[in-house]
Design a protein around this nucleic acid. Structure first.
Length: 1099
RNA sequence: GGGCUUAUAGCUCAGCUGGUUAGAGCGCUACACUGAUAAUGUAGAGGUCCGAGGUUCGAGUCCCCGUAAGCCCA
């Protein structure tokens, strides 16, 4: 049996073959079944929506997921991963609307809800095939055969059971929220409707800076600006920025000329007062003067204003709670207005939020049904309680053509405020304001009924439990997510749409009775009661669809015998996905054991954009139901941008097609690039050239190393059948690479354990390229291709085999196809392992007894010395092929000599020198250089350090000698004396006069560049070997083919070089004979540096 | 407007608890090496470490204020 040798290499083809094998041999299934009975590692799949095509960013997100599931499998866990599909919600509905060319209003009219939802059900799985294809091709292992689907009856039933549990716990309530509302159309507008082009238009409104009189003061006012004066009657608070600086200004009212003190943000002073007026004297002011003087009399921070009270501006209606206080508002700025914001909780979402946080009530009236209502009715008119303006539309645009009054409500209010000394400034102001896209009339922000989940009730638990979650990166957990939890508001669950999970709440006609249904069984029995009561004609059918419109037709009967209708709302789709830990198993109706064994999740990963989406809903539902986290570790990955850092979009044409990339570069290089290039949580600038580079550099090098191994292992029939050679029998370099390898294992293991895949990939890559390929293999080449199949050679094979095998295993989570292939290539010959796939093996364990830090230090020394010698050779244009007699190394310390001696042979062969000589410390020929040890001196002397450092740089050779011998030296500076010890300085050897010297850090190397005839001859011989090897290659000879060499006589030096190195030349070139002849007529002319040789080679 | 992230060579990224000459790979230039060869080595060019201020003997690193880009939310 031979190791497979590759001619060309097609990574995509390898992946295809491996994929076939996985399918045929059911490797994925086995990776789970062979771990039966082992501890579970639970992963939750965040369900994608298949109504769009997958992009390259999905490859990234899923690679991250896949890596840790594969890693944990190798670590002996059983990792079940159920796939899933997110199927409800607005994106699907919008797509269907677009495809059908209809709008929301047409649903139920032009098309029945039934047909519409049927269309949604089809559309949502439109690209499932492409998704499945991508999943397979990129090597993402997830169970696609039995996924959870959020529109399925069982899934919805679990959702209902959860909703009921929340309902029973009192977490579900109906309240209102401020939403964009079109009085003209009589409907709320969704955020996407507001995002349509043309919605925002510039309009000119009458704006008022109102004076809110500070409670208990004579004439002191808070100034607040509004572009919607009609909301002033609903004012219940003033918001300030806690970090903003405010001032109190003494001045006069421009309309009443009354003296007043007004409070506003310091930064806004210039907008309200003309700096030219600053010279005017308050005392000189007369009512009616054009120039109004002002004077700053006090300054304070916003936080000092919090809690101060003021008098109601327009006292038509009493507030329904505490009101008329200064409260903090996180969104208050000094961009415009006064830096004090008027708050009307019924007409602004921010207003509502900050008022609620501060415990401030609203101005409400009772409507016809006796329910709380705002001071503007649903058609946009002031209610009757606003006696002066009852029935007036708040915007002139709401009147029918020609009926609008000359003075809009805003103007009328402005006049009233001016007259009552409540307006500081009234002016027209142009700004952009949203309009209803159907009626073209301005939108109001208006309180509308919604169902809420009272997440604020469990805020403390949400915050506390979040701190137990391991977030990658941590800042997303503490910052983005943590801060947000701190400012949590209740979860608005209602959606007025058609395709989604219906809210299972039925309400009686008089609104006093409610039922929340928690299962199909319960619904069935309630329907039975309803049939009995005569509200329903028939029992619930077995194949009843829980979606609209069917569920809307279900009429129930209340305990007191009233008819009950379902609340029309659907629930937020994020509830669907957030409930997947339970609903994917149809818990609690089925699979109790499976659920319990797989909750909470050990690991989840999604894009950072899911922070307030899936991450939150998972967390919230879990905490509310079980007071537990839903996941213990989470990676929030960043975006995939194009190579210039722009967002990818199909419209701009810069989106990368994942299928083309996988096709061209194969999944392994694609995944490796994505993981190794940047941390998953940083945005990835996807550059296809980077994938090519990874392929060339990492996979190319690894493959070359394998090919090298395979070539010679095949020649020697190495199959690892001999027992493993003891570590102490192996060479220095074998032990070195194995030491490095075991260090690598533990570091990579730790990196995966810490959810740091980038770190893991980079460690593996550096080891493979630098340590294994560029050092170990390069240095040990000859052991593989020269000499008999002895213990040393076996040791080399075994060492390299172990390295390759270990790299394959360590890398397999990231590059699952290629590494499985490599595993098979290696293992099929040796048969050391019984597994069918690398993904069924165990993760390598680091053997700390193999780690020899001393050895690693020695080798590092050898590398540095070699590098310095190379640079010296370069400097003098002496090629490595030309042997040189010796190098000199100044001895740095005791262990230095031992270390170098241990790796002496390596250095000598690497840089082609005959001897290494050491120069002792006290030798006179060394020129010493001394540098301050800043770290030590800084700690010791602090501020004096600079002066001391300057002194040290001026030390003479005698001073250094004194310091070295006595280990102390007195320095005087500014009268003080300081005693230096050897620890305070770093001594290095700068130069050796008469030698060619190179220095790096403390290490210094001197190279003897004199050549004698013997060295020259050897150089010539080596040159010849090189040329002959090239000729052999040109002739297409195999490594083991024998040749005969004839050479035409040349000058004496050359002839004698050939004669004296004949044996060497022959063994290197597999030559049976080397003959120097007077003439070789048919020979080829070989150009050497100083000679030309005529040579003929015969096989 | 708020929260969070990022900013270091032409490009992609390292840079640990502050230590004085800021690194790697790719790319570019030159030279060398070559039984792994679509590799490899050495050297060179290339940096106001986004900007301003502060702390410190010393700041890419710590603090503060900005700028730009991105994401989420208003």
């Amino acid at each position: 049996m031979k190791y497979k040798e590759y001619k060309g290499l097609n990574y995509a083809e390898i992946a295809d073959n491996v994929l076939d094998k996985w399918k045929k041999e059911e490797i994925f299934e086995k990776s789970i079944s062979t771990r039966e009975g082992k501890p579970a590692f639970t992963f939750y799949e965040g369900p994608p929506s298949a109504n769009g095509t997958p992009g390259i960013h999905h490859v990234m997100a899923r690679a991250v997921k896949d890596i840790f599931c594969r890693y944990k499998t190798l670590k002996g866990f059983q990792v079940k991963r159920k796939g899933g599909w997110d199927t409800h919600g607005l994106p699907v509905e919008l797509q269907v609307e677009k495809e059908l060319g209809i709008t929301k209003e047409d649903i139920g009219k032009k098309i029945s809800v039934e047909e519409y939802n049927e269309k949604c059900r089809e559309t949502v799985m439109k690209f499932k095939d492409q998704w499945d294809d991508l999943t397979e091709k990129m090597g993402y292992w997830v169970d696609l055969d039995d996924p959870y689907v959020t529109f399925e009856k069982e899934y919805i039933e679990t959702l209902w059971s959860i909703l009921k549990e929340l309902y029973d716990k009192g977490f579900l309530y109906k309240g209102y929220t401020i939403q964009p509302y079109s009085p003209a159309a009589g409907t709320g507008l969704s955020s996407h409707e507001l995002n349509q082009p043309g919605t925002y238009r510039d309009v000119k409104d009458t704006t008022v800076t109102a004076q809110f009189k500070k409670k208990g003061s004579e004439n002191e006012y808070f100034l607040a600006w509004t572009t919607t004066p009609w909301t002033l009657a609903a004012n219940t608070a003033l918001a300030i920025g806690e970090k903003i600086t405010y001032i109190k200004v003494e001045t006069f009212n421009a309309y009443t000329f009354d003296k007043s003190f007004v409070i506003l943000a310091k930064d806004r002073l210039a907008s309200y007062f003309n700096p030219k007026d600053t010279d005017a004297k308050i005392e000189d002011y007369n009512a009616g003067d054009k120039v109004i003087p002002y004077r700053i009399v006090e300054e304070f921070q916003g936080k000092d204003l919090v809690g101060q009270e003021y008098e109601q501006l327009l006292p038509y209606i009493a507030p329904d709670g505490p009101a008329f206080k200064v409260i903090p508002g996180d969104y208050v700025s000094t961009e415009d207005g006064t830096g004090i914001v008027h708050i009307s909780p019924t007409f602004g979402a921010d207003d509502y939020r900050v008022a609620k946080q501060a415990g401030i009530g609203a101005i409400m009236v009772k409507d016809a049904d006796g329910k709380d209502a705002p001071i503007v009715d649903k058609r946009g008119r002031y209610v009757k309680e606003i006696s002066d303006f009852a029935g007036i539309f708040v915007k002139n645009e709401y009147y029918a053509d020609g009926e609008a009054p000359d003075k809009s409500l805003d103007v009328q209010i402005a006049i009233k405020l001016k007259e009552e000394n409540k307006a500081f400034k009234v002016e027209k102001y142009e700004h952009s304001y949203p309009h209803c896209w159907r009626t073209d009339k301005p939108v109001l922000y208006y309180p509308l009924d919604s169902w809420f989940i009272k997440t604020t009730a469990v805020k403390d638990e949400l915050v506390a439990l979040n701190k137990t979650i391991n977030w990658k990166p941590a800042s997303t957990g503490t910052g983005r997510f943590g801060n947000w939890l701190e400012n949590l508001v209740d979860w608005n669950l209602s959606r007025s749409r058609f395709w989604g999970t219906p809210l299972p709440i039925w309400v009686s006609e008089d609104k006093t009775e409610q039922k929340c249904i928690g299962s199909i069984e319960e619904l069935r029995s309630e329907v039975s009661k309803s049939v009995e009561a005569g509200f329903m004609k028939s029992e619930l059918s077995d194949d009843f669809d829980l979606h609209r419109p069917y569920v809307d037709d279900v009429v129930l009967v209340s305990d007191s015998g009233q008819q009950m209708l379902r609340e029309k709302d659907l629930i937020d789709v994020w509830f669907d996905s957030g409930a997947m830990p339970y609903a994917q198993w149809h818990y609690p109706f089925e699979n109790k054991e499976i659920f319990e064994a797989n909750y909470p999740a050990d690991f989840i990963a999604e894009g950072v954009d899911q922070t307030r989406g899936w991450f939150f809903t998972l967390h919230a539902i879990s905490v509310m139901l079980n007071k537990k986290v839903a996941f213990k570790n989470v990676i929030a990955n960043g975006l995939v941008l194009d190579k210039n850092g722009n967002k990818m979009s199909k419209r701009l044409g810069n989106a990368v097609n994942p299928f083309e990339t996988l096709e061209k570069y194969g999944p392994d290089a694609t995944r490796w690039y994505m993981i190794s290039n940047a941390n998953p949580w940083d945005n990835l600038k996807f550059n296809i050239e980077g994938v090519a580079e990874v392929q060339r550099r990492f996979f190319g090098t690894l493959h070359n190393t394998y090919s090298f191994f395979a070539l010679y292992a095949n020649l020697d029939s190495f199959d690892f059948s001999n027992s493993e050679i003891a570590i102490n029998q192996r060479t220095e370099s074998d032990r070195w690479i194995l030491s490095k390898l075991n260090t690598l294992i533990s570091k990579v293991d730790q990196a995966y354990e810490d959810y740091e895949p980038t770190k893991a990939a980079r460690l593996i890559q550096d080891f493979t390229i630098d340590d294994l390929s560029n050092w170990y293999v390069r240095l040990n080449r000859k052991r593989f291709w020269r000499g008999e199949y002895n213990e040393d050679k076996k040791s080399a094979y075994q060492t390299l085999y172990t390295c390759l095998m270990t790299i394959a295993k360590l890398s397999s989570p990231v590059a699952p196809f290629y590494m499985d292939n490599l595993y098979a290539d290696l293992n099929s010959v040796t048969g050391l392992e019984k597994y069918e796939s690398i993904h069924l093996t165990d993760f390598p364990t680091s053997d700390s007894s193999m780690i020899d830090e001393d050895l690693e230090a020695r080798m590092s020394l050898a590398q540095n010395i070699s590098s310095l010698v190379h640079s010296l050779r370069k400097k003098h244009m002496i090629k490595v092929r030309q042997p040189l007699s010796k190098i000199l190394l100044p001895v740095l310390n005791k262990s230095f000599k031992e270390h170098v001696t241990a790796v002496e042979e390596l250095i000598k062969s690497e840089v082609n020198i005959k001897n290494i000589e050491f120069v002792d410390d006290d030798s006179v020929i060394l020129v010493k250089n001394v540098k301050p040890n800043f770290r030590k001196l800084g700690q010791e002397y602090g501020p004096k350090m600079k002066a001391i450092a300057a002194k040290i740089n001026q030390l003479t050779d005698e001073d250094i000698a004194t310091l070295e011998i006595k280990n102390n030296l007195e320095l005087t500076l500014d009268g003080d004396s300081v005693t230096l010890t050897l620890e305070d300085v770093e001594i290095s050897y700068q130069d050796i006069p008469g030698w060619s010297v190179a220095t790096e850090g403390k290490l210094t190397v001197a190279l003897d560049i004199t050549l004698d005839d013997d060295l020259r001859k050897e150089g010539i011989a080596r040159d010849l070997v090189n040329r002959v090897q090239n000729l052999r290659k040109d002739m297409g000879l195999e490594v083991q083919d024998k040749i005969n060499i004839r050479i035409e006589r040349n000058d004496d030096l050359v002839n004698s070089a050939l004669e004296s190195n004949k044996e060497y030349i022959c063994s290197e070139t597999q030559a049976l004979s080397l003959n120097i002849l007077e003439s070789v007529a048919d020979g080829s002319e070989l150009e050497m540096d100083e000679y030309k040789l005529k040579v003929k080679i015969e096989a």
